[in-house]
Design a protein around this nucleic acid. Structure first.
Lengths: 183, 183
DNA sequence: GGACACACGTGAGCC
DNA sequence: TGGCTCACGTGTGTC
């Protein structure tokens, strides 16, 4: 009927295209928007409501979650000495070298005080965050830190750890014989 | 030539606005695109490359990660009933509370021993990794940890920190008065 | 009034 | 060919 009449105009191609593409585009936009909102709802930390911020927060959140998963897996491995599975890299938190000064090598002394218990004295220059890294290194190695005493007379610091050992003593020694790993 | 004629018609306001808005819009689009790509790079499961799919995959991935975290936490609690893995310790990542167990509240005591120096005693149940998180929390708050002494008689542990304060005491108190944040 | 963020319709490219 | 996605420039609203 009328449908065929209008076609003789020049505008057919354009009009048809516009009309169909229009609604399709609308749907696409709407879908995108919905997913963005869903993503925003999943992310607890919302800095701002704008799209870019939503994405940015989502990115950070994903990173945080991944770190958290990694940590938990490491912790689980620690508490469960025999455990199969994962080949994913753990225990790699030691090597973080952005340090240029060569002096101040830590003096390390290991003495055995029980069947699987050790005193570990680390005497070195004070570095911010170094102690935490030391702790993390040990715990990530499966060492149970029973007691720790840190005494500073700047710029020097003496760390005394009492650790319950799960792994071998040789492992400990090998680790602490690479001072650069501890910086 | 013709350009100047046309400008007088509607006025230059429109043109200037267009020109500035144009480039701004371009930047916005580009930023959005970049973040989308970053997000896509973080997500291992990539079904398709189109925007909606990227968002969809990201959504699913976040859900998966959350489930995984939950599972790991449960597992950790299960194998080691006394301990609790907690929130990840990042900068300012203290407030992330879904916490149900109420027992084992740490006793915290803060005493001022100098103009900006404090003793901080934290007496609580021993939790694996808890001490490191404590340290990280403090350092991330700008506290200079001068001295620390940790003494354990399982399952209890007494942490004594001597800290040089950069921020306000009220900040410290406010933080340590919410024990659930320290888990 | 200007900076900013968004939705819109449209042209172009790709299966 | 037609459906689908994307980038673009612009109009409009808000702070």
């Amino acid at each position: 009927m009328d449908e065929e009449e209008e076609e003789q105009k020049i505008g057919k191609s354009a009009r048809q295209h516009s009309c169909k593409n229009l609604v399709a585009e609308r749907k696409r936009r709407e879908k995108l928007k919905d997913r963005l909102y869903i993503l925003r709802a999943l992310v607890p930390k919302i800095s701002k409501m704008d799209r870019a911020s939503i994405l940015g927060d989502a990115i950070e959140f994903v990173k945080d979650l991944q770190n958290q998963v990694k940590r938990l897996q490491e912790q689980l491995e620690e508490t469960n000495p025999e455990e199969d599975g994962g080949e994913q890299g753990g225990a790699g938190a030691l090597c973080n070298g952005d340090n240029s000064d060569e002096n101040g090598l830590p003096q390390v002394e290991v003495s055995q005080v029980g069947s699987n218990r050790f005193f570990l004295k680390v005497f070195c220059e004070h570095r911010r965050g170094g102690f935490v890294r030391l702790m993390e290194a040990m715990t990530s190695l499966g060492l149970d830190i029973v007691n720790v005493n840190v005494t500073t007379s700047e710029p020097l610091v003496l760390n005394v750890f009492e650790v319950e050992v799960i792994n071998l003593k040789s492992l400990i020694l090998s680790i602490f014989s690479f001072p650069k790993d501890l910086k």
